[in-house]
């Protein structure tokens, strides 16, 4: 029953987020002198943030404690990211980077839609046995959260820059932050995300090396998951150093932050696709279908 309710609520939240994204897109193109669109966008975003938060609490309360734990299943992990992402975007928008929600809302929609898929596929919890697994998941999920913010800021940067190069005022219907502020947000969130991702990957590495029979097999370093994860890490390593490598600032940093998030999603897709074919999963117990997330632990 909680799974069904979760799926229904996720579908509603995704639809609301989609509508809010559309309203935000209209506001970027059209002057909103009456303020109706602004109020509508804010109301929808408020509902989305509150809704994801309440759903997260609902799952905390109604899903049996022995099964549920934070980041215990992929749907909970995504729900946590979505909630934190929406809240963080709201905070950042109020603090320094105005107009960020317009670019974050499509990403929020994708995260929620992804949660629906995850909820339909795998409600079973992860088998979290060691502290390395917990650290790995926490690092990777929170790292992904910051990368999502960086990607939203990257999209915003490219949009503002394009408007300015065409000698148009960015966002006729709303005030958007300056290029400089947006670039700073990309750099900061990418730096934080990179630190968390590095931490998560190192923990994952230790886990793989320490565990004799992993789902990745003996040649784990050749598995698509590890290769893609290394590639993402490398991209972010470049992005976070753009301040020092002058050729990689501004537009390039914005593009790389977007490409990085796309790759993270690709890793999830690849790992999920390959999961059924992956035969050796000795470390996961029970006969249940074991949830497979982007990081597969």
């Amino acid at each position: 029953m909680p799974e069904f309710i979760t799926s229904i609520l996720l579908a509603i939240l995704t639809a609301l987020s989609l509508v809010a994204s559309t309203v935000a897109a209209v506001r970027l193109r059209k002057d909103d002198t009456s303020g109706v669109l602004r109020r509508l966008q804010h109301a929808l975003l408020g509902i989305c943030v509150t809704g994801t938060g309440l759903l997260f609490v609902y799952r905390t309360i109604y899903v049996p404690p022995q099964v549920w734990q934070p980041l215990g299943s992929h749907v909970d992990g995504l729900l946590l990211i979505a909630t934190l992402f929406a809240a963080a975007v709201l905070f950042v928008q109020r603090a320094s980077v105005q107009g960020l929600t317009a670019f974050a809302l499509p990403l929020l929609t994708i995260l929620l839609a992804w949660s629906i898929c995850a909820s339909a596929w795998t409600y079973e919890p992860f088998k979290i046995e060691s502290v390395w697994t917990k650290a790995h998941k926490a690092g990777v999920y929170l790292g992904s959260l910051f990368f999502c913010i960086a990607a939203a800021a990257g999209m915003m940067y490219l949009y503002i820059q394009r408007r300015l190069q065409r000698h148009q005022r960015p966002g006729p219907g709303q005030h958007l932050a300056s290029l400089e502020a947006t670039e700073q947000l990309i750099i900061r969130t990418t730096t934080l995300g990179f630190a968390l991702l590095t931490f998560g990957l190192v923990c994952g590495l230790i886990l793989v090396v320490d565990t004799p029979h992993t789902s990745l097999g003996p040649t784990w370093w050749l598995s698509p998951k590890v290769i893609l994860a290394a590639l993402v890490w490398l991209i972010y390593a470049i992005v976070m150093n753009v301040r020092f490598a002058t050729a990689f600032r501004g537009t390039r940093a914005a593009w790389l932050s977007i490409v990085g998030v796309i790759l993270i999603m690709a890793i999830f897709g690849v790992v999920n696709t390959l999961s059924d074919e992956d035969e050796d999963q000795p470390q996961f117990v029970d006969n249940k279908k074991i949830e497979v997330d982007a990081w597969r632990h």
């Binding site: 320094s96 503002i160 300015l164 005022r169 960015p170 958007l176 932050a177 300056s178 290029l179 400089e180 502020a181 700073q184």
Partner: peptide, 10 residues
């Protein structure tokens, strides 16, 4: 000046 402010934050 407004255009300049759209590029620079400070």
């Amino acid at each position: 000046v407004d255009f300049a402010r759209q590029i620079f934050e400070r």
